[in-house]
């Protein structure tokens, strides 16, 4: 039971907004010590896993190009470009992006878009521009909402598209797990059953984007 103290440490640490890196290290020590490991063993296990997971941080290789195009005015261009298409409002824009992200992820192309390379330089400025065209300059709260919605749309499109692709990590994990339990399945059998949820995700989030569109319009009109 004591090993669950580590989970508690994470929850409390995040709740009181301690620096998350520190929270993670503390949680690792609490968990490891409760499970009977020595501090050195915990540090070794943690360091080994950190080193093995370096690929997670490789994504920041796209920062230089994102910064260069930003320096040259891409965000401003994205914002004014959308302003020229007056009929495109924020709802349909993000619904289109959602569909794009779900379909390309379903084809296995999960890394062609993302928060650093698409949302910050292009999609978020376009979404802001689409609202600004209708309502004039945004207040800080609306700007935050529009940006957060753009970021959330990327995540939702990715999560509920990628599992339709047969060679994605989660599908392979399931195949491996079932095989070790004596159930043989082909990846394609699992991936077709990701389609119903993908459609429902598109409908639910699409409906929310339509409502979000109306809300931003009302907020700024009123």
């Amino acid at each position: 039971m004591l090993t669950l103290l580590g989970v508690a440490a994470v929850v409390v640490g995040f709740a009181v907004r301690l620096n998350p890196l520190l929270v993670v290290v503390i949680a690792a020590f609490v968990t490891g010590l409760a499970a009977g490991m020595t501090p050195v063993e915990v540090l070794e296990a943690f360091g080994k896993a950190f080193n093995e997971n370096r690929f997670v941080t490789v994504a920041y290789l796209v920062l230089p190009v994102a910064g260069v195009v930003e320096r040259a005015g891409l965000q401003e261009r994205a914002r004014s470009l959308i302003g020229r298409f007056r009929q495109v409002s924020v709802g349909p824009l993000l619904i289109l992006y959602l569909a794009f992200r779900q379909i390309t992820s379903a084809l296995g192309l999960t890394s062609i878009a993302g928060q650093t390379q698409s949302i910050r330089p292009m999609v978020a400025p376009m979404a802001e521009g689409a609202v600004e065209t209708r309502t004039g300059p945004l207040d800080a709260a609306t700007r935050q909402d529009v940006r957060a919605m753009a970021a959330g749309t990327d995540n939702i499109g990715l999560f509920f598209g990628e599992d339709i692709f047969i060679a994605i990590g989660s599908i392979l994990l399931m195949v491996g797990f079932l095989a070790s339990s004596g159930i043989t399945l082909d990846p394609i059998q699992l991936s077709v059953w990701a389609i119903p949820t993908a459609i429902v995700a598109f409908v639910i989030h699409g409906a929310r984007l339509v409502l979000f569109d109306r809300r931003t319009r009302r907020r700024t009109a009123g």
Partner: peptide
């Protein structure tokens, strides 16, 4: 610092796995 958090959390997951947190829950 948020840039390193995903990798740190992956490492925490490994410590959780060694300690058997998942099975317990």
């Amino acid at each position: 610092w948020a840039a390193l958090l995903p990798q740190m959390l992956a490492a925490l997951g490994a410590v959780f796995a060694i300690a058997g947190v998942g099975e317990l829950i």
